[in-house]
């Protein structure tokens, strides 16, 4: 490399560094896309495939949900004389196939996905427990809104 080229290369490197530093400094003052989880929860929207709920009064015990379940999370369990689906969240992958195949809309998905439990047994739900509403934590929620300048902007709701 000739001395002149070397000097030009150094100058180019210097401007590159300066641009990078300027760009970084600019972003110190820009607001960020951050949700302070778990103090604040993100609203997951109406279509979110979260934890499931069975409406046992509508269920016709057709077993289609248990048959399509890809991870064997749903199983038919005997209650009195008929069988109804029970679920284990140890296996559920939240694909929502069971909801979409149910011919009478007896299964529905909620906007909650916090399936954490203290014991493994709590994640196995019999049909009676499965037909209760999933626990939805009472915490402040924010809704993501799209923004051209910031990407996502979170507004409390």
């Amino acid at each position: 490399m000739k001395p002149k080229d070397r000097r030009a290369g150094k100058l180019l490197g210097l401007t590159g560094h300066m641009q990078a530093i300027r760009s970084g400094i600019e972003h110190i003052f820009k607001p960020r896309m951050t949700v302070l989880y778990p103090e604040v929860l993100q609203d997951l929207g109406p279509n979110y495939r979260g934890m499931l709920k069975l409406r046992i009064d509508i269920c016709i015990s057709c077993t289609l949900c248990a048959r399509i379940c890809p991870s064997n999370a749903l199983k038919m369990v005997k209650v009195d004389v008929r069988k109804y689906p029970g679920i284990t969240y140890q296996r559920c992958i939240f694909c929502g196939f069971c909801v979409d195949i149910c011919p009478v809309d007896a299964l529905e998905m909620s906007g909650s996905h916090d399936a954490a439990c203290y014991t493994l047994g709590e994640q196995v739900l019999k049909p009676e427990d499965f037909s209760k509403d999933p626990v939805i934590e009472d915490k402040p929620r924010v809704k993501p809104l799209f923004d051209e300048k910031r990407g996502l902007r979170y507004e409390s709701c």
Binding site: M33, L44, G45, N47, Y48, R49, F94, C95, G96, M109, P144, F146, G151, L152
Partner: peptide
């Protein structure tokens, strides 16, 4: 910056 696109996909698909 993945987040806006993941959010878009989530609104379309639910996951």
């Amino acid at each position: 910056d993945r987040e806006p696109f993941i959010e878009l996909a989530q609104r379309l698909t639910g996951a």
